[in-house]
Design a protein around this nucleic acid. Structure first.
Lengths: 219, 219
DNA sequence: AAGGGCTTACTAAGTACTTAGTAAGTGTGC
DNA sequence: GCACACTTACTAAGTACTTAGTAAGCCCTT
């Protein structure tokens, strides 16, 4: 189990002493996640979250000193791709990419989380959004993970810091994100896992058989 | 030149008689676009748009009968990918895919439009968002366009309604959308055009040399 | 060519409501 | 008896949208 300390710098108001309070806090967090997922950050209100949790608006602010801090707490709570919590003995190379596809497949059963990250990541690019740093860091981390995995999978050796590799990594991350929005709007028209797998395979193929700069002159 | 009639069903308040009024209307539209792009729909206010346009809030509502209708008018105004306005003699097959990449490249110089579509498409999946229908339709159309182009590019003949083809098309659309968010958060870490081109090439290669169901067992 | 009647293009002021956040108080359990 | 976990009561600011009014212009008849 994960310890309770949030990596988040802002201090919480004194909360979490009694067991009941800790449970309440957790419950508010869960409900806030659902609400932010369904309505976005700006359109969700503390009032609505409080109502759903069965407390007053001020009750929510007893546990989280501001709406923005509630959001960052929700985001710290768990990661949509489960990558960061894999730990140091995480899978490498091909196995990592397979893990990505598995995560996408599992996400088909977790619409709430998909919604949360799809909506908030895009909303975060607006002026002064409180989750901007979170997502910037998140993408930086993901980029490194995927780039490394690609290099390992192709057994290129880590000698050359390959720009093509980064482009491919970005494309893989992008395809996962982009599919989420399409899937949320029209679940029956999109097979997230199949499309992701196909894209990763294709990109991997393109990288593998190209030590010389000849190929891929299709366009 | 495009005619002034909006495909949008809702009738506007009687507006646009005099030339000056038409210009004012256009100006409000332009400013609304910027504002929605910078702040999202929910967080943008009529007041802010009005202030920037140098009229009162009610002045804006003279031209657009509601905030929601202002948004749909903005979206009707122009399409980010320029696809719909290609007309019936649009490029086909490979040429169409090349056009997609060109559009992405051009978008690097139009951050406002990228922002508008990236933010709003994700925001639109939230409960009761006024742009939901717009984006649902938009993706449906895009899917058809790209699927057709892929089929033409591979010269598969349109005999079999290929599921793989749809998956690949969705992946291509997704990669373009997903890259936008990454690019908006960290422009220096993302080469939208290069990543898009690489992904399309890779997916195209994967489709071309696979009439039998053997290949792509990498994962 | 002047004036009546109508429309357009707004503004100022308000309605009715929601927002995040605060300050002070209350009841309960240790 | 006192700290914790809240609630009640509130504020100040903002929200979309309405209402009522006005200045200016256009068109048609006389």
């Amino acid at each position: 189990m994960m310890s309770e300390s949030t990596p988040n710098g802002e201090r919480q108001p004194r909360a979490g002493k009694s067991l009941k309070a800790q449970q309440r806090r957790q419950e508010i967090l869960r409900i806030a996640m659902d609400t932010f997922a369904a309505r976005g950050y700006n359109n969700a209100s503390l009032q609505e979250i409080a109502d759903r949790a069965g407390v007053t608006q001020a009750g929510v602010l007893h546990y989280f000193r501001s709406k923005a801090q509630l959001l960052t707490s929700v985001l710290d709570l768990r990661d949509a791709t489960d990558i960061e919590q894999l730990g140091p003995d995480r899978p490498r190379g091909l196995a990592f990419l397979r893990h990505l596809v598995d995560t996408v497949r599992r996400n088909t059963e977790r619409e709430g989380i998909v919604r949360l990250y799809a909506v908030l990541s895009a909303e975060s690019v607006t002026e002064g959004h409180p989750a901007q740093d979170y997502f910037r860091d998140r993408y930086t981390g993901l980029r490194t993970f995927v780039t490394d995995a690609l290099a390992e999978a192709c057994e290129l050796g880590e000698t050359r810091p390959d720009l093509d590799l980064e482009d491919a990594a970005n494309a893989i991350i992008a395809v996962m994100d982009g599919l989420q929005i399409q899937w949320l709007l029209a679940p029956d028209s999109v097979d997230m896992a199949a499309s992701t797998e196909r894209a990763i395979n294709a990109l991997l193929g393109g990288l593998a058989d190209k030590p010389d700069q000849q190929r891929s002159e299709a366009l």
